[in-house]
Every structure is written in structure tokens, then in C-alpha cells.
Nucleic acid binder design. Structure first.
Length: 423
RNA sequence: GGAGAGAUGGCCGAGUUGGCUGAAGGCGCUCGCCUGCUAAGCGAGUAUACGGCUAAUACCUGUAUCGAGGGUUCGAAUCCCUCUCUCUCCGCCA
């Protein structure tokens, strides 16, 4: 959520930034409503002031044993007026809130302006795609061949876009998750194991609601949702709190299953485990003071990159353009891992600085110094990284001519020492 | 699922015969004093949001806020209703 005062002071700049995000007109009639609100607020407050003074007067008169009937009647009539104005005001304020909740974050000045992914910038490249001396298979063939991924039986259980992992496949998924958590814990992130279902308030706090309700799985009969990412529970852990400066920065990491309805994406990545309704992910979340949030974004991205490096998976880092960024983000780096089956790099992590956008929605603040005013924190999040896509990348990048798959060295301790998955 | 207790400021905790109570007291924190240092002690200060005024996110000023929403009343932290959450006991359950 943007600061209403900021919009009021720089409407043109905000409008321009929203155009860059392909959201022209998102400001809607905010300015008119805001103007109406302030004038109405002035009126009601004036009347309330009178009521407060008059009521006190009534108290005094009664205490002296004097007649206060006339004044009481006057205040009673004014009460009607207050009620009507308050209702009008509530209507306007909910209109303003609706607009504000649907406005995306403003891109940081370092973000390239562009309509879509064609304006993204490649920041760096790590590793080199392997040259195969045989025709490499896609993971959706390797998995069933080794009997470690079972798409057909998964469909029997849950329909399309679900996968059953079996045997060493199941073990590999778990190994990857544990390796991620251990690595991030070692680098200062506190491990958290949150609920997989959260309230609508949480979803509003991180920006999934109200705009993206269709992307999520809602719990029947409850105001709750399956988490689409651990970013939601982790960031909302400190919702409605005032933190002390010494508490910051907070670094957290968590494994959760992630649940996404992904309405509208049907037809993309239909094969394999790239796009699923349920997938596993280890997330990184930081809650920091405003001054260092961009340094923290660089460090968080490097923390996410580290696990790919340790796994020996080639990847690149992409700076997303203004038109390609997520709703809550002010600046996002995507990590893309090399996938031989696609013969291109495929998103495996997204690292964002949301600045105070989520903090405003979730009301997460901190006390900078003893004398200074309370301020909103900055929140950051990044996948560290998606487990399912990592398993797919391992299967494809580590496949051998005989159909077996080498286990990356760092994962072997998590696989009972296994060096190679074979039939 | 059944029965009961509770929800107050950064934290703890008063206040429930309705009326200067935005809210006692304590802790914490800040500034100052004091004492070789530290600890202790003394004094002062210390909520948030949204308006108005303003160059100001500084003063000053107004309104709102005692879990949330609604009601009664001239006036509600205090009375009534609904909801949410927490705790205790019973049942059920991994």
C-alpha cells in the first residue's frame, strides 16, 4: 500500500510510475475522494468537538443540581447529524481503501522501465551449460524411467498438475529441502516452521489479496487460504507489531508446501514438475530498517544464489523490468537455472525488496531511536529456492548416458551417501 | 463438540454504582543530577492514527482509539448484543 499523503503530494509522479507498471488509471478517482474525505472529516470533527464540550457541560450542570434538559436535547439532535456524516465518511474511506489496496508498489529508480520481460536486464551468469555427448532427456522422461516420479498415479489422486515422488525421488526432494534449510541457517537465518493455512488478513498484508484471490486455494467455509509461498506467514509473523531497533534485522527461512491455483496459466509448462498446484519451497524473508534494505536485497540474492552454486547448477541473475515485476515489489531479481529440456534458463527464485509496501498493509513498524518517530520496516523475500524445480534441474543437468543421474556432492550426506540414482 | 475465565499503552497491571481517565502505579526507554567506575539513588520526559495550521515528518490545535463491530445515553474502557482470539476443565483425536 502506498502512503496516501505521498500520493497527494506527487500525483503525477505516481501516475507515471504506474504507467511503467502497465497500470495506468490505477489511481482512479483517488484524489477526488481524498479531497471529499478531508472536507467531510473537518465537518464531523467540528460537530464532535461541540458534542464533547456540551456533554461535559451537562455533567457540570447536573452536579450543581441545575436543569440541563435544553442542552441535552441540542446534543441529541446533533448526534443524528454526526451519525449521517460518519456513514458518508465511512463510504468514502472504504472507497479510498479499495483503490489503495489495488495499487501496486512503485518501482525503484534502478529498475529498467519496460512493458514486459523483454526489458529485463541480465546482471550476471554463473556456470556453464553442460555439453552433452548424447541426446539429453527431459525430467518428465528421466523421472518415470527411474521410477522416481509418477505423474499418472498423481493424476489419479489429485488431477492435473500434481506429482508423486517415489523412492529416491522422494528422498531427493527431502534432501534438497534440508540442504537449503541447513545452508541458510548456517548463514544467519532463523529457521521457522509456520502454518500452511493463513487468514485473509495475512494475504492482504503481503499483497495477495484483494487482487489475486483467483490464484489461491481458499478453504471452504472459512476465511482462510492455503499459503502460496512461505513469504506470507513469515512476513505476517510480525503483523501489527512495533519492533525495537535492536530487533532488526530479522532473517528468517522456512520450508512450506506452496499451493497455487494459477488461473490463466493453463497451457504453460504442462509437462513435468515445473508448474504444479502444490510444490515445495524454502523461502528467505528479511525485515529490516529502511536505510539498508537495498544492501540487504543484494545479500539476500547472493544467499539464494549460494545454494545453486553449491549444487553446481548453472544459472543467471535477471533484474526484472517495471512491467514484469510482482505487485508488492519495488525491485526484483529473478534467478534462472539452466534447463536442458527447455534449452533455456528457467525461473527458480525471485528475490524482492518490497520496501514499506507490505509493512503498511500489515502494519509492521519499528522504533528507530528513543526520541524518533516510529517508522515502517522494509520487508524482503526471496526463494531460496524452489525445491521441485531444483530436483528437475538436477535430474536434467546430472543425467548420464546410461539413464542414471549423479547425485550432487553436497546432497550425498542427505541421501545416505548415495552417489547415483539408477534403475 | 460441552462448561467457565479473560482481552486495557513498548511490556506488566489498576480502573466495571457511566462524567477533565488517553487512561493510576510499576517496568522499560530518553535526558539531566549525583557518586572514583559500575550498581543503586534523585528529578523530568515517554502512545498511535487521521485532520487543521505550517517550509516542516518542528510546535500548537482538533477528532478517534482500552480485542473487533453494532446498540443504549447529553456523555461509554465502564451498561446491552454479536463476533474473534487467549487461558482452564471435560470429550474427541495425530
Amino acid at each position: 500500500m502506498l502512503d496516501a499523503k505521498m500520493i497527494r503530494a506527487n500525483p503525477d509522479a505516481v501516475e507515471a510510475a504506474l504507467r511503467n507498471r502497465n497500470m495506468p488509471g490505477a489511481l482512479d478517482n483517488f484524489l477526488e475522494l481524498d479531497e471529499q474525505r478531508r472536507s467531510l472529516l473537518g465537518q464531523v470533527e467540528e460537530i464532535k468537538k461541540f458534542r464533547n464540550q456540551a456533554s461535559q457541560e451537562v455533567g457540570k450542570l447536573k452536579k450543581q443540581g441545575l436543569d440541563a434538559a435544553e442542552l441535552m436535547e441540542k446534543v441529541r439532535l446533533v448526534g443524528q447529524e454526526i451519525k449521517e456524516l460518519d456513514e458518508k465518511l465511512n463510504l468514502i474511506e472504504s472507497g479510498i481503501e479499495k483503490i489503495l489496496l489495488n495499487i501496486p508498489n512503485i518501482p525503484h529508480e534502478s529498475v529498467p522501465v519496460g512493458e514486459d520481460e523483454s526489458s529485463n536486464q541480465e546482471m550476471r551468469l554463473w556456470g556453464e551449460p553442460r555439453k552433452f555427448d548424447f541426446e539429453p532427456l527431459a525430467h518428465w522422461d528421466i523421472g518415470p524411467n527411474l521410477d522416481i516420479l509418477d505423474f499418472e498415479r498423481a493424476a489419479k489422486l489429485s488431477g492435473a498438475r500434481f506429482t508423486v515422488y517415489k523412492g529416491w525421488g522422494a528422498r531427493l526432494e527431502r534432501a534438497v529441502i534440508n540442504f537449503f534449510l541447513d545452508t541458510h541457517s548456517k548463514h544467519g537465518y532463523q529457521e521457522i516452521f509456520p502454518p500452511f493455512m493463513v487468514t485473509a488478513d495475512c494475504m492482504r498484508g503481503t499483497g495477495q489479496l484483494p487482487k489475486f484471490a483467483d490464484d489461491m486455494f481458499k478453504i471452504e467455509g472459512r476465511d482462510m487460504y492455503m499459503v502460496p509461498t512461505a513469504e506470507v506467514p513469515l512476513t505476517n509473523l510480525y503483523r501489527e507489531e512495533i519492533l525495537e531497533e535492536r530487533d532488526l534485522p530479522l532473517y528468517m527461512t522456512a520450508y512450506t508446501a506452496c499451493f497455487r491455483a494459477e488461473a490463466g496459466s493453463h497451457g504453460r509448462d504442462t509437462r513435468g514438475i515445473i508448474r504444479q498446484h502444490q510444490f515445495n519451497k524454502v523461502e528467505l524473508v528479511k525485515i529490516v530498517a529502511a536505510e539498508n534494505s537495498y544492501d540487504e536485497l543484494e545479500k539476500l540474492t547472493l544467499d539464494a544464489e549460494r545454494v545453486l552454486q553449491l549444487l553446481g547448477l548453472p544459472y543467471r541473475v535477471i533484474l526484472l523490468s517495471s512491467g514484469d515485476m510482482g505487485f508488492s515489489s519495488a525491485k526484483t531479481y529473478d534467478l534462472e537455472v539452466w534447463m536442458p529440456s527447455y534449452n533455456e534458463y528457467k525461473e527458480i527464485s525471485s528475490c524482492s525488496n518490497c520496501e514499506d509496501f507490505q509493512a503498511r498493509r500489515a502494519n509492521i513498524r519499528y522504533r528507530p531511536g528513543s526520541k524518533e518517530k516510529i517508522r515502517y520496516v522494509h520487508t524482503l523475500n526471496g526463494s531460496g529456492v524452489a525445491a521441485g524445480r531444483t530436483v528437475a534441474a538436477i535430474l536434467e543437468n546430472y543425467q548420464q548416458k546410461d539413464g542414471s543421474v549423479l547425485v550432487p556432492e553436497v546432497l550425498r550426506p542427505y541421501m545416505g551417501g548415495l552417489e547415483r540414482i539408477e534403475k
